[in-house]
Nucleic acid binder design. Sequence first.
RNA 1: GCGCCCGUAGCUCAGUGGAUAGAGCAUCGGUCUUCGAAACCGGUGGUCGAGGGUUCGAAUCCCUCCAGGCGCACCA
Length: 544
Amino acid sequence: MLINAANEAQKSGKLAAVALPEVTLERPQNADHGDYASSFPLKLARTARANPMAIAAELVKIMQPGCDIADIAVAPPGFINFTLRTSWLTSQVNSILAAGPNYGNSDKGKGSSIQLEFVSANPTGPLHVGNGRGAILGSALAAVFTAAGYRVEQEYYVNDAGTQVMTFYRSLYARYQQALNVDISMPADGYQGAYMLDLAKEIISEEGDRFLKMPEAEGLKGIGQIGIHKMLAWIRQDLEMLRVKFDVWFSEESLYKNGLYEKVSGMLRKSGYMTEREGATWFVSTALGDDKDNVVVRGDGSPTYFASDIAYHYDKFVQRKFDKVIDIWGCDHQGHVSRMKAVVNALGVDPKRLEVLLYQLVTLCRGTEIVRLSKRSGDMITLREVVEEVGADACRFFFLSRSADSQMEFDLELAKKQSQDNPVYYCQYAHARISSILKLAKDKSIDYQKGDVSLLTSEAELVLIRKLLRLSEIIEIIVETSAPHHLTYYAQDLANGFHSFYKQCRVVTEDQAVTCARLKLVESTRVVLSRTLELMGITSPEKM
RNA sequence: GCGCCCGUAGCUCAGUGGAUAGAGCAUCGGUCUUCGAAACCGGUGGUCGAGGGUUCGAAUCCCUCCAGGCGCACCA
């Protein structure tokens, strides 16, 4: 609309014929400035060598208010403000009801495929709180991208190969032997956590001492594999408690077994990105702008985790042909980003198709005392303990409520209290209230299907409708920024809009017509609020 | 030393280069004869770490400095 007006103004000579800047629409903070505002004239002023106010006035003359826009106004120093027509706003209530649970969805993604890989913690111990942050970030993003018309696959990369796994095998084998009264000490670099003892005991109760009778190498491997398997089952349970589910559990080891690793390293060798030096094999990241090269195969012939990652990303982009891949990592893996981008580049894939989302670490504390997160040391608070303490809804909301870029502190002493103060209950309470109103209407057999939405004219009603309409905008922002924390702020804003409306406008009254119109508004609020909570993976309770 | 993230109200944090910088908690004060007070309404509280620069316009972009977190392995 603005572009058309500008083109027309240029044709008629009212505006200098210069390249037009990008048209942007903002949402003004001040409601007096309308529903949408554009600073287009201000941006045009320089190139067009004209007063922004004059440009704005010309453009406004050309643009005509339509069925959706009631008013277009010029505001100093050169804004154009658009105000939506009330009748259009109220009609949106019917649109929301018609869309139902699909409200807010779009086809922005046009069915292109996205692979989201997250958590991917080593299966050498239970998940800790930091893993929880990644898990919730990933699952919320998956929901939002799906709503925006992308085909999303959620994947957990299982590090079932490599040195950490061997350390786990040795630790578990030692615990197993100790539990069977063999005098042996834990490996110095072993996993000390109490869960290793429980695991060993569990295996003894199920499998007896048969691994003891085997040659050491065989026993180690046998017990280790059972242990990893059990660990993975635990992890899966932990994640399910948080309502995080994966479509694929991808085995690192499979990359070696099926020859993909050999194939990809051969390709890179041929194209000159692999080189032998100091007895090891290196990936020449520096050729692609990285600050240093990285070892792929150690001097002893064993591949590093980086080697698997190269084959893994080949599999993602080339074998499985994902249009886009998003890896979600803790910020302690930050150094790995440029390498991975270089690898993707070397494989002939546009590195822009790989997005690495880093989240800052979660620090745990008990009061003022900081608790270190380490699987190797004994003192560790598991994700499960936290979820059991505060519940999945509060936990998800808490993790989602901060941008991935900001560090967060999880105070265990305040966990319970935090969960009571958690704004998630504010949002859920709004949903429960709505449900109870709708139930009242049902008990009174009020049929509001034909309610006339044009009766929704009070300020509180219109404010609420405007908030309902923002969901698709929020989804779009999240798709563009991969920052799902906006959902939590939107949910609170929406809940506030409803609570405020509820206080000012009695829904079920003697006035049948108004009652029906308001019930429609209440129902549409339920649709949008529960959709918002659903995207966050949070339940919408009818009672609390 | 180099790289990434962060510094916004007493606390925890939002803030897609736009108009008077927001929310929750805390604090102070109002609001229940009627659909859920787990709520609503209002007040107090800010040199947006500091200093430069770009811009009609900067919390936002650039530079320098200060403070915190995390990396910089033939660990993952």
